[in-house]
């Protein structure tokens, strides 16, 4: 089981996956908006998405777990 964490603080702008999707390492799973920039968050592991802990528009801190993988 792996977790995907945010690399910096910002607002969740786009979620590119849904529960049950399979992701590969390096896939852009979420895009944050911060400092007027789009900040893609990549999965560091491969797996199936079991839980998405944020929704579009919510604020996230640096190092926050946003997605859980199986």
């Amino acid at each position: 089981m792996a977790e995907i964490k945010t690399t910096m603080a910002g607002n969740v702008w786009k979620i590119n996956i849904k529960t049950g999707d399979t992701v590969a390492a390096g896939d852009e799973v979420v895009i944050l908006e911060s400092m007027k920039m789009e900040i893609p968050i990549e999965s560091e592991a491969a797996g199936t998405v079991t839980e998405i802990l944020v929704e579009e528009g919510s604020f996230v801190n640096e190092d926050e777990v946003i997605i859980k993988l199986d």
């Binding site: 910096m8 920039m37 789009e38 900040i39």
Partner: peptide
């Protein structure tokens, strides 16, 4: 690297 943390 704009792909990581916006290159900030």
């Amino acid at each position: 690297q704009p792909k990581q943390k916006g290159g900030i």
